[in-house]
């Protein structure tokens, strides 16, 4: 067990070393507004979900609403604006702050099935049909359109 951990640790370091030497290998993280996190970016990259899960339980079960970590406060600084429209981009857009790294790491984000993915107050446009399950659900709308047409024929 320890051996495996040690190996993983070495691999991990090796990867981060490579990533540091070749910054262009990694995702291009959009710059944020506001004060930097006092804990540092490395900490946030690693633990943002722990912070969010912890504080969401505080809010939901205890009714404590002035927590530090919330999706709302993420988007206060981390909204990515579309230069053409001047609007923040939703999770459907691959430039969305969360997606940049999550697409790169191939880790699916479940948050935006229920939460909005833009700052409060912005009126998010209607969902694109092909992105209903999230952009990474790998399902093609065309397949389903055909399926639905086939079924409609049957009925």
């Amino acid at each position: 067990m320890r051996l495996i951990l040690a190996i993983l640790l070495v691999v991990n370091f090796a990867i981060s070393a490579v990533a540091e030497e070749h910054p262009d290998y990694g995702p291009e993280i959009p710059s944020a507004t506001g004060e930097p996190h006092p804990q540092g970016n490395e900490f946030m990259r690693k633990f943002h979900m722990d912070l969010l899960s912890h504080d969401r339980d505080l809010t939901m079960y205890e009714g404590i609403r002035d927590t530090d970590a919330s999706l709302k406060s993420c988007f206060d600084c981390h909204a990515v604006t579309d230069q053409a429209t001047g609007n923040p981009v939703t999770y459907e857009d691959e430039r969305n702050f969360c997606r940049v790294c999550h697409d790169y790491a191939a880790v699916r984000v479940d948050c935006f099935m229920c939460h909005r993915s833009t700052p409060e107050g912005f009126n998010e446009p209607a969902l694109l049909k092909s992105r209903l399950l999230g952009p990474d659900d790998g399902l093609d709308d065309a397949l389903f359109t055909e399926l639905a047409a086939f079924v409609a024929n049957l009925e």
């Binding site: 999706l71 709302k72 939703t90 935006f112 099935m113 229920c114 939460h115 909005r116 993915s117 409060e120 009126n123 998010e124 209607a126 969902l127 209903l132 399950l133």
Partner: peptide
Amino acid sequence: EPVNNQKTFAPRGKGT
């Protein structure tokens, strides 16, 4: 149905 543009304090989504 799939939902977006929720209120910050009232999250709601498909399948729940």
